[in-house]
């Protein structure tokens, strides 16, 4: 088992394998998203309270979910990299941060656009979810800023890993405190996300979108990890061979 993990995590092996796997994430992801779009925009009936504006959840919920998942992946791989000194794990953490930040931005932007017709304002501090997402975005910025400030890759990996772990301990606390904070004054009615009351015609497209977004995220992540691996291994022999052999093929 241990041997298998090491072989899988060896940079040349991963580099080749990832290139083969990426389409297997990307294409099913696209198919699921197209089904989700069709089901969500055409088949699902309008919500009895929010009308057609509720359809924004088909992009908002998957983005919000991925923003949290990307942070978890980042923190877990940072921890693995710190404890077992697995270089690939650090590459995964480095690759996950910018994608996570983009999805966090998407969750914020779509939540804010949804809020405009629902609350009559682009930004409602009373909504704990939007506020926590904003803090998440700052956490991502901090992580990327620390990484960017340290020139030495190995040092940047380890320093940002400590920050990611400290952040991971704090994320639930932040969510909890923002919930408490907004519960003190009567906020506007919150967006109901999922929940058992949801009609099947609304729910299945949402599940398809969540799964589709996750697969697309996986493809994006693998692509970025591949680049990270190539960059980190730029002085090794296998990269030299790789570049030389493909240069010959081109001729």
């Amino acid at each position: 088992m241990w041997k298998f993990i090491h072989k899988l995590a060896s940079p040349p092996h991963f580099y080749g394998l990832a290139a083969k796997i990426i389409p297997w994430f990307f294409l099913p992801g696209l198919i699921l998203i197209f089904y989700g779009l069709y089901g969500g925009l055409l088949l699902a009936p309008p919500d009895y309270q929010q009308g057609d504006a509720f359809r924004i959840i088909y992009v908002h919920v998957p983005s919000a979910y991925l923003s949290l998942m990307a942070y978890s992946i980042m923190a877990i791989s940072a921890g693995i990299g710190l404890i077992w000194r697995l270089k690939l794990a650090h590459a995964v953490a480095a690759a996950a941060a910018p994608i996570g930040a983009w999805f966090t931005f998407l969750a914020l932007a779509t939540g804010s656009i949804w809020g405009r017709p629902m609350w009559g304002t682009w930004w409602e501090w009373g909504d704990p979810r939007l506020t926590s997402e904003l803090v998440m975005l700052f956490l991502y910025f901090g992580y990327m800023a620390l990484r960017g400030a340290i020139d030495d890759t190995a040092k940047a990996d380890r320093a940002s890993a400590v920050l990611a772990l400290v952040g991971a301990v704090n994320v639930p606390i932040i969510h909890f405190s923002v919930e408490w904070w907004s519960s003190l004054h009567q906020g506007p009615t919150l967006m109901k996300k999922g929940g058992p009351a949801m009609d099947a015609a609304m729910l299945y497209p949402l599940l398809a979108m969540i799964l589709g977004f996750t697969l697309i995220f996986g493809a994006l992540l693998l692509r970025r990890v591949r680049t990270e691996v190539l960059y980190r291994e730029r002085r090794t022999r296998w990269v030299r061979h790789l570049v030389l052999s493909s240069a010959v093929e081109k001729k």
Partner: peptide, 19 residues
Amino acid sequence: LLSLLILPLAMPLLIFGAR
């Protein structure tokens, strides 16, 4: 950089302290 790293983590303290 220090402010960027610490301020988001310190938000729960601010929320609970001030409130």
